[in-house]
Amino acid sequence: MINNIESLYVEKQHEFIKQYMKMIISFSLIHVLLHNILLFYKLTFFPIIIYVIFFLISILAYLFVEKILKIKFKILVYSQIILFSILIFIGNYLSYPKFPIALFYLLPFPFAIYMVESFKISLISTFVIFAIVILNFFFWGGSYEHVPRFDIAVNIGNWFTYLYILDFFLPIIESAFVIFLISYYIGIFHKIKAQKEILNLRTSKALSKEKIDKSNEPLEVLYQNVMIYLEKSKPFLNPHYTIQELTEALNSNRTYISNSINKVGNTNFKDLMNELRIKIVLKDIEDKKYEKFTIKYLFTQAGFDQQTRFNRAFRKVTGKSPSEYIKSLEKLEK
């Protein structure tokens, strides 16, 4: 049941990312169209190039969204904040240097942070962003006199004036939509977390007795159970798999799990996970899958997330590097 709730949580995270991407693509397209229309009035072509590039990147990201979804949600949130911060400051001072209107794009950031952090950290980020906006406004000599008014005289016509005003206030409009989207999913995330907490409370008493019984198992039997579970379920294919997750899966005690691996298996949890992953890679190499796929693909599928970690673990198990091991197999076949 807990696994189902966690799966639902991840599913909703993925749903949010897709909806967010669609919104960003729409906003980028609006900017491209508006800036093309306003090109002759604003006498600058560079902002259009930025929006076109950003629009194309957004489209490309959506096409490869399934690969993006494999990245941890928290990393995606902070990477977006960093990327958008850079683009916001560049775009603002290229488009409207006299009034930092684009800084309104910073408003959704505390809400985004609240999705992956505590309310306290989100509140701190709110004050930081507010300070940044105020300081930038005074530092760059911003003035309300540079805010477009509906009575601006534009020779091209009134419709052009309205488009110019719309373009100027787009950061506020877009930020409002993004805040609404994030707030909606924050509510969903909190409901799912509450369900998980309730389920944990209901099952904690029932599991406590079972954990006590399991903790009294001989280490040899416990180690056998550990290996059976790992080889059957293969949870180590997840590069972020932890001993705590293994403990919960076996309804045991973390100390006993660790002791069984150390004393019976003569290794530790980290090395055991790597050995099992290397075992899968070795099987793929023996099946000559490296002729169809890259080594990086093989070790990623086996649960490694970094080349250096894989190379270190491979040499520790085989005494050779991957390329050396493949060459030695090819020599034996000859």
Rank of each mutant, 00 (worst) to 15 (best):
Val317Arg: 08
Glu245Thr: 08
Ser122Arg: 01
Gly157Cys: 04
Pro235Tyr: 06
Lys205Gly: 01
Lys211Cys: 00
Tyr51Gln: 14
Ile132Cys: 08
Asn155Asp: 11
Ala176Thr: 13
Asn92Met: 02
Tyr9Arg: 15
Phe177Met: 11
Phe310Ile: 02
Tyr9Val: 08
Pro239Val: 01
Glu275Cys: 05
Ile48Ala: 08
Phe189Gln: 00
Pro47Met: 07
Ile182Met: 00
Ile186Pro: 00
Thr318Ser: 08
Phe304Lys: 07
Arg312Ala: 09
Met227Lys: 10
Gly303Asn: 00
Phe119Ser: 10
Ile212Glu: 13
Ile129Lys: 06
Lys320Asn: 10
Lys98Tyr: 09
Tyr9Ile: 13
Phe119His: 05
Ile48Arg: 06
Asn253Ala: 05
Leu43Gly: 07
Glu66Tyr: 12
Ser118His: 04
Val147His: 04
Leu237Glu: 10
Leu43Thr: 14
Asn238Cys: 05
Ile57Thr: 10
Phe314Arg: 05
Phe45Met: 12
Ile113Val: 15
Lys283Met: 07
Ile182Ala: 01
Asp167Phe: 11
Leu123His: 05
Ser28Gln: 13
Val154His: 05
Tyr105Glu: 13
Ile278Trp: 01
Lys232His: 11
Ile49Cys: 08
Val77Gln: 03
Leu250Trp: 04
Ile17Tyr: 06
Lys209Glu: 12
Ile71Met: 13
Ile113Cys: 03
Glu248Phe: 09
Lys234Pro: 01
Ser323Asp: 13
Lys283Phe: 03
Leu56Ser: 11
Gln19Trp: 14
Val147Tyr: 03
Lys196Ser: 08
Gln244Ala: 13
Ser28Asp: 12
Leu276Tyr: 08
Ala131Glu: 10
Phe27His: 12
Gly187Thr: 02
Leu207Asn: 12
Pro47Asn: 08
Ile295Ser: 01
Thr44Arg: 13
Glu6Met: 14
Gln195Asn: 13
Arg309Asp: 09
Asn200Trp: 02
Ala194Asp: 09
Trp159Leu: 10
Lys70Val: 10
Phe111Val: 03
Ser323Pro: 00
Leu103Thr: 10
